[in-house]
Design a protein around this nucleic acid. Structure first.
Length: 969
RNA sequence: GCCCCCGUAGCCCAAUGGCAGAGGCAGGCCCCUUAAAAGGGCUCCAGUGUGGGUUCGAGUCCCACCGGGGGCACCA
């Protein structure tokens, strides 16, 4: 497609007929996009399977590279100029790497399930699938117009049954697995059952409440023990219930102030029966494997904080009851060394032992404040439990630090001191962390100190604070004090020695053991929404195993999402704590019950009516790009190994470059790692991590304008005059903010295509700063990149005639160092994803060539490398010029220019001469000059001489090619 | 409160510990134009947030503080 020179119908007769304008750019760009699509330029062959055509010739001998963006949610508003930042970044990098000889796969898909589509459907009465499909079409068009080098054969959409079939299949894999601590890996549940049957394994204690060995359990009891081992399981536990959204949410979806991340509705903790994923089994590996990943440190840190490992011990306290011994209470502490200072125990209000530990009546002689103005401990406990469950997280937040609690009327024995200490419940102890119970050590813990002050509890320091310490609790390092009994003496030890000594004593005496806990909780996986993946789960409606969750067989996948009359989730007033979740799928009455033969004859089953959370589809999509049409596996193992497998021993494997926003630090990125590790354990993938290298693109902010009333005005209608900004002749104030409707500063890629063309837009996005940095988007600055392309165009094409104007003569000697320095700099910018410096280098070369060859043709030996240098950044104009320079093939796989080292060093260099570190002169020396030659030359500079005078030169620092510094004595 | 990142010209940003400026926008001047600008050329503009320290030499390394952004927050 060596197009006839584009006829340029000049709207303005004064513009040269063949100038590179937005209109010309638009025609060139669309014709190249057509050609790339027709020729399959960016099709990356797989080693085997339906996409393997061309592998031998195009890929086999080359290194591979898999580049991936976080795929977009196809919202009805389309893309604004902020979205493509990362997409363009990966595009430039992948085009560059392709020119370096890699078999590059760059992909894009759609995260199609989600709440907005459902809400839009409710408003318009259109099926969410219909509106989502329309949005996908619109966004596909925008992405194509950007000229991205995606292998479009591999586009995926999470809402397609052919896709979510495999989401459901992976769910089944997780459901049908348990975590084998000994192997430190997930294994199939069948293996668990056969080991239990063979007697080579006992159930994990917490899974077997029956107090009998496996061999003596009934069939139903065995089922419940097995189900309690599964990595996906149903549990009745306090969860985040959001009445305003009508659904439960995962911890990751709740903000620090107890509201939903989406919609900002209050969230309440309520015990509900819900699906969870045992991500906590992977806590240690999710933590440890972060080290080897090439991820931003900030994201690694956020994941480490979220996983929140604490190393400490569990300690058992024996309680006393009116009849003698009561139940023992297990607490978790990171400071076992302070046990001698534990003067009371606190349980979370929801703790399972609270009822059993509540005394009949108040013991004699206790302070009124401990009675909570209640007649009996049971009444006080009931009132307190009620009030704390009613409070939203937000309210708990608001009275943070005001400690309250209730005495249970019972005491426990401190195993170190033998003393009786009172047992309280208080909501500053959280059910979900550790054991849900603590030993309170006011001397070394600020929270415990506050509570102790409020309830007049005794305080014993067990770590000596430094002299002059005037604070309350002392949490720092110091020697142990008050920590000795006739059986154990910690006094004088530092904190870590004391911890170790205490733990070994506890273990010896049977009072406790070392233990590590995590802040990470199991992932709440069910949602009461319509627009998501149905679970591949059914429940028998009768029989002995009634209500037991059972996975449907693989041949029944996908479990299709049924149509319903009403897609809307049942929502409630924001603060309706007592409301109950209600899944929209429960309304699909025909779908709800199903007759199946799952091995014991035809029976009736009820389907699971919850759907999966929005994150499910994005937990594994990078794998589906690799083998998108495979109907017998989510991905052929050989193909996975080729694109994502480890490169050498110790390498985790994964996507070679993954780019997306930092807002997914602990949501998508943690969930996806978890799923990937399960698939790895079960032998389905060879990589142990999904994303080897991660880069967060920055956020773009655009100018927004407020009028005198403080209202936002349409930013596109604001004019700037004489340093001020005006809207309808009224002065307005400029600020920068998130692009969108609310600030009325929406700028779309379509505006940019129309005004400048895609190449200028791409250049501008990449030019304003490093990829990972947030920066303002200044619509007025885009013109600079168009000017650059116009100058480039003019170097190759005569604006009057449209003829190619390059010459065949060699380049000037003075041009070669410039060219090669620029090549070197552009490569450096491409490698480091700092495309802004690559563009600056290219601009230098364009400016140099424009000046040096103002009156004569630019040599082909300069023009061609220049075109190739800019090709990853501005691919359309580069292809067009390359074609006009006489090349029939696309430049997509042409070798990227290489800098010749001989031209990187000048013969003569200017070096700085300093005296005592101050610049005193500048002299020219031969580039290869050694230290003494540089010094000799430097001493001849008159100004340097004057400064040296007669003083003694104590030392001379010579940096070759840079400077000489005389240090005087 | 704790943790992380960032402060260079009017603005966006460059500068392996070695002469603070590569590139762009805006401003000014000139050329081309009847005129204009989304053409061409030239040009003004900071001593690197503040205060210490290390070093022959600090934008760069270390410490403290100030300002901006982000994360976590009763996690025992």
């Amino acid at each position: 497609m060596s197009q006839a020179p584009v006829p340029n119908p000049p709207a303005d007769p004064e513009i040269p007929p063949h100038r590179y304008t937005a209109a010309v750019a638009g025609r060139i760009e669309q014709s190249w996009q057509d050609r790339w699509a027709a020729e399959g330029t960016f099709a990356a062959p797989n080693p085997v399977g339906d996409l393997s055509e061309g592998f031998a010739e195009r890929a086999q001998a080359r290194p591979k590279l898999f580049v991936n963006d976080m795929f977009p949610y196809p919202s009805g508003e389309g893309l604004h100029v902020g979205h493509p930042l990362g997409y363009i970044g990966t595009d430039v990098y992948s085009r560059y790497m392709r020119m370096l000889g890699h078999n590059v796969l760059h992909t894009m898909g759609f995260d199609a399930f989600g709440l907005p589509a459902e809400q839009f459907a409710v408003q318009t009465g259109q099926h969410p699938r219909v509106t989502t499909e329309q949005n996908i079409v619109a966004i596909r068009r925008q992405l194509r117009r950007l000229g991205l080098d995606h292998d479009i054969r591999r586009s995926v959409s999470t809402m397609d049954p052919g896709y979510y079939k495999w989401t459901q299949w992976i769910f089944k894999q997780i459901f049908c697995s348990f975590y084998d601590e000994a192997a430190d890996a997930a294994r199939p549940v069948e293996a668990l059952v056969s080991e239990l049957d063979a007697g080579t394994r006992e159930p994990r204690p917490e899974t077997n409440p029956y107090g009998m060995p496996w061999s003596e359990l009934s069939a139903q009891q065995r089922n419940s023990v097995v189900d309690a081992h599964r990595l996906a399981y149903v549990s009745q536990a306090p969860v985040n219930w959001c009445p305003g959204l009508g659904t439960v949410l995962s911890n990751e979806e709740v903000t620090a102030d107890g509201r939903s991340e989406r919609g900002n509705f209050p969230v309440f903790r309520r015990p509900l029966k819900q699906w969870k994923m045992r991500i906590t089994a992977y806590a240690e590996r999710l933590l440890a494997d972060l080290d080897a990943l090439e991820w931003p440190e900030s994201i690694k840190l956020m994941q480490r904080n979220w996983i929140g490992r604490s190393i400490g011990a569990t300690i058992s306290f024996t309680s006393a009851s009116s009849t003698g011994r009561g139940p023992s209470i297990e607490v978790f502490t990171t400071r076992p060394d302070t046990l001698f200072g534990a003067t009371y125990l606190v349980l979370a209000p929801e703790h399972a032992l609270v009822e059993e530990l509540t005394a009949e009546e108040w013991p004699d002689g206790i302070a009124e404040s401990w009675r909570s103005h209640a007649e009996s401990p049971a009444a006080a406990v009931a009132a307190y439990q009620k009030s704390s469950s009613r409070r939203s997280e937000l309210e708990r937040q608001a009275d943070q630090r005001v400690k309250s609690g209730v005495f249970l009327g019972r005491y426990a024995t401190n195993p170190a001191t033998g003393e009786e200490i009172p047992i309280f419940i208080a909501d500053y102890v959280l059910t979900g962390y550790g054991t849900g119970a603590i030993m309170a050590v006011p001397g070394q813990d600020e929270r415990d100190w506050e509570f102790a002050e409020a309830y007049d509890l005794s305080i014993v320091r067990t770590v000596a604070p430094p002299d002059g310490f005037e604070g309350k609790a002392f949490t720092g390092e110091g020697p142990a004090i008050n920590s000795a009994s006739d059986r154990l003496d910690l006094n004088g030890m530092g904190v870590s020695d004391a911890k170790a000594a205490m733990i070994s004593w506890l273990v010896e005496e049977g009072h406790g053991q070392a233990r590590t806990t995590y802040r990470l909780h199991d992932w709440l996986f069910s949602r009461q929404r319509y627009w998501g993946e149905p679970f591949p789960i059914v429940y028998p409606v009768d029989g002995e195993d009634v209500d037991r969750p059972i996975a449907v067989p693989d041949n029944a996948l996908p479990v299709l999402l049924p149509d319903v009359e009403d897609y809307s989730p049942r929502t409630f007033p924001d603060d309706d704590v007592t409301s109950e979740p209600e899944a929209p799928l429960a309304r699909a009455t025909d779908w709800l019950t199903v007759e199946m033969d799952l091995g014991d004859g035809l029976r009736t089953y009820r389907r699971e009516t919850n759907t999966m959370p929005n994150w499910a589809g994005s937990c594994w999509y990078e794998l589906r790009y690799l083998d998108p049409h495979n109907d017998s596996a989510f991905c052929d193992p050989e193909i996975e190994k080729y694109w994502m497998g480890p490169r050498e021993d110790g390498d985790a494997g994964g996507v070679d470059l993954y780019v997306g926003g930092a807002e997914h630090a602990v949501l998508h990125l943690l969930y996806a790692r978890f799923w990937h590790k399960v698939l790895f354990d079960l032998g389905h993938v060879s990589s142990s991590e999904p994303f080897r290298r991660l880069v967060n693109q920055g956020m773009l902010q655009a100018p927004a304008y407020t009028d005198a009333r403080g209202m936002y005005v349409d930013a596109s209608a604001v004019a700037s005059r004489g340093g001020g900004f005006f809207y309808d002749d009224a002065a307005v104030r400029q600020e920068f903010g998130k692009i969108g409707k609310s600030l009325k500063n929406m700028i779309t890629p379509d505006d940019m295509f129309a005004d400048y063309g895609a190449d200028t837009f791409r250049l501008y996005e990449m030019f304003t700063g490093p990829l990972d940095q947030s920066r303002p988007w200044d619509p007025k600055a885009v013109i600079g990149m168009l000017r650059l392309l116009q100058r480039l165009w003019r170097l190759v094409i005569d604006e009057q005639t449209g003829e190619v104007r390059v010459g065949e003569q060699p380049a000037d000697a003075a041009s070669l160092p410039v060219l090669h320095r620029v090549v070197d700099g552009v490569r450096a910018g491409m490698e480091s994803l700092r495309f802004n410096i690559a563009i600056a280098r290219i601009t230098e070369l364009v400016n140099h060539a424009t000046q040096a060859y103002a009156a004569r043709p630019v040599p082909r030996s300069m023009a061609e490398p220049l075109v190739l240098l800019i090709a990853p950044l501005a691919p359309h104009i580069a292809e067009e010029l390359w074609s006009r320079l006489g090349h029939a093939e696309s430049l997509a796989r042409t070798d990227f220019p290489v800098a010749d080292p001989r031209h990187l060093v000048d013969e003569m260099v200017e070096i700085a001469v300093q005296v005592n570190g101050k610049l005193r002169g500048s002299v020219g020396v031969l580039a290869g000059a050694d230290a003494s030659a540089m010094e000799m030359t430097a001493r001849q500079d008159p100004n340097v001489r004057a400064h040296l005078g007669d003083a003694e030169v104590r030392r001379v620092i010579s940096v070759p090619g840079k400077l000489v510094n005389f240090v005087l004595g």
